[in-house]
Amino acid sequence: MDYHWNWGIFLEQVKAGEETYLHWLVTGLGWTLAVSLAAWLLALLLGITVGTLRTVPHKGLAVLGATWVELFRNIPLLVQMFLWFFVVPELLPPDWGLWVKQDMLAKEFVTAALCLGLFTSARVAEQVRAGVGSLARGQRDAALALGLTLPQAYRHVILPQALRIVIPPLTSEFMNVFKNSSIAFAIGVMELTFQARQMQEDSEQGIETYLAVTLLYFICAFAANRGMAWIEARSRVPGLIAKPG
């Protein structure tokens, strides 16, 4: 292979500026984390809400929840990203559309976080629904029999158990958020993948660039995994689930 290795490239200055390539990657990592964490927060809030609604004995709410889930999980994420960025502003009332296109701060970031958050919320909702469904009906009955209202039963009895059950599948979703955030480069968010492409073109050291970026994504997803494992361990119910051997 006729490739000129240069691992020192990260500390070299970029062609048209003062900063180093490392600076580019670090900035990119920052945006990746920002998009991912904002999207995850949104996904958890909406996903838990929508997933819960799908289990409530009320037809209208169940249909609403089902529509939500099908809408966001049947369209490719990249297409959703373009829809939110190019199409939705055109569908808004003219004043709003203009504001979004011209004045909104960090427009690309907000769009990416919103899009990824909604996409992920549909997946979180399905996990939460499955978690609630896996609880025996007796728990709900016992809570109601004590005089709790249905919302109180969910708040104190059903969701605390269901959410513990779905921590492992939610861990995968959290890791996916970091990986899926790379799609945000397509609408111009200067996140890690965006910076990697820029560095590759500018430095012509594509292999080092992508190996470094690979490692950074791996660290993000792995940290997410460890973080969730920590939460899982802390929320373990004494006597209920055997410690993993």
Binding site: A142, A143, L144, A145, G147, P160, Q161
Partner: peptide, 21 residues
Amino acid sequence: NLPRLRARVGMVFQHFELFPH
């Protein structure tokens, strides 16, 4: 108001149904 009524009627279940968490 069913919750209010149920609060005054104790119930014990076959499978105990204590809240495990």
